[in-house]
Simulated scan of single mutants.
Amino acid sequence: MRKHLLAPGAYVQGDGVIATEESFRTLQGTTAFVLGGETALSTTESDLQVGLESAGLDVAAIEPGVDSCTFDRINSLVDEAAAAAADTIVGVGGGVALDTSKAVADALDAELVTVPTIASTDAPCSSVSVVYDDDGNFDDYVHRDRDPDLVLVDTGVIVQAPTRFLRYGMGDAFATRFEAEAVARSSEVTHTGAHATGAALTLARSTFDNLRSYGESAIAANQRDAVTPAFEHIVETNTLLSGLGFESGGLAAAHAFGKGFSKTDADAPHGLLIAFSTIAQLVLEDREPDILDSALDVYHTLGLDRRLTDFGIDDAAVEIVAKNACSEDTTMGNEPMNVTPGRAAAALRTADELIARY
């Protein structure tokens, strides 16, 4: 049995790390092309330039306003970076900017640095870019052959973001343990094309432990712009542990349900949809009552508690979510049992009722 663990070349986290030479010492490149969102770059550009240049990298160009990840935008940035003779791509911001930077780096076979400015997603550590069309609909994936060469997480920057982004990241991380456990029980392969290592499963399980232990305190710290040990724990959980856990541990029903929701008019951030879908996955799998109770407790404590009506999903739409969640292009097949649309719909409705009763 072949096992495979994907991981960034280096992961650096702390308050003020983007302005320090030491953060960039693992890089081999000499010329950086920086791209990112307008707001993200406005808060990081000067410090980032100091850090890169102190480490001996020339900043050839800075491209702000990257607010869409389409093939047209990617190709345009590839041309600009190539013209600047860049051998290092630096992506700054949220998921869209980071996914764009991965695709640009892949096209140029360049080093990649991701600098998240919010902790709402595990995208900074993964090798996958999600590409959309001009109307904002899913188009395709770009799979880089390796994870980022450096993930640079400045908690002094991230703590300035609204607390809702931290909560969304916790919602996504909430699924990591349970999906990895489902994949392990089913003996399916992960995103790597191989089986999960024991280390990946351990990391995936630690995400839930950290959410339970530090999540509430981290939210309180974020609300007061305070970088505390609990806040640091949760930023690492949302970004690194969830990233490693999903990519090398695998995805299952929670993200399949998430894809099902995307086929409806569901109006909610990805993290909240995935958190709800995790409760539905536990129902679907008939997990032990103490595990379900513990998950419901964390779900409510962290303020992730939403019901189907909060997403704009009525009973008829549940059938649409369930049908699409069970299609061949989702990760529902990674579950350790056969899941029919009927069973999926029943799990969604039951999860909704359990959340209401908790």
Rank of each mutant, 00 (worst) to 15 (best):
R307V: 11
V128P: 01
V78G: 12
V130A: 14
A200W: 01
L201R: 04
L284F: 03
E38K: 15
E80N: 14
N222D: 07
E53T: 13
G136F: 14
A107S: 15
T331C: 09
S127Q: 11
N210R: 10
N324L: 05
L296W: 00
T331D: 07
D305Y: 01
L244F: 04
I279R: 00
G156Q: 08
T44Q: 06
S54I: 06
G36I: 12
A105D: 04
L112W: 07
E353S: 12
D154E: 09
L273G: 05
E335L: 06
D314K: 08
F246A: 05
V235Q: 04
A344Q: 00
T228A: 10
G36M: 15
G198M: 10
D329Y: 12
A345L: 02
A351G: 06
G171I: 02
V298Y: 01
F165T: 01
K3D: 04
L112E: 07
P64G: 11
G29R: 01
A204S: 07
N210A: 12
T340D: 07
N338V: 12
L27I: 15
T155Y: 04
V235T: 07
V66M: 14
I89W: 06
S277W: 02
P289Q: 12
E232G: 04
H233D: 13
A322M: 04
A280P: 01
I355T: 06
R349D: 04
A97L: 10
F208T: 01
A61K: 14
G156V: 09
V318T: 03
C69E: 10
A256V: 03
T70F: 09
A256C: 10
K3N: 08
A61C: 13
E181Q: 12
D140E: 15
P162A: 11
A86Y: 14
E247G: 00
N222A: 15
G56S: 13
Y132R: 12
A345F: 00
A226D: 15
V50A: 10
G14Y: 05
A280W: 00
A105E: 07
R306W: 03
V131Y: 10
I18M: 09
I89N: 03
V318M: 03
F165H: 06
V59D: 07
A266E: 04
I291Q: 11
G171R: 01
T39F: 10
F246L: 11
S327V: 09
R357P: 01
I291S: 08
G243D: 02
G36C: 14
E285T: 05
R224Q: 13
D305I: 03
L201Q: 03
T192L: 05
A173D: 01
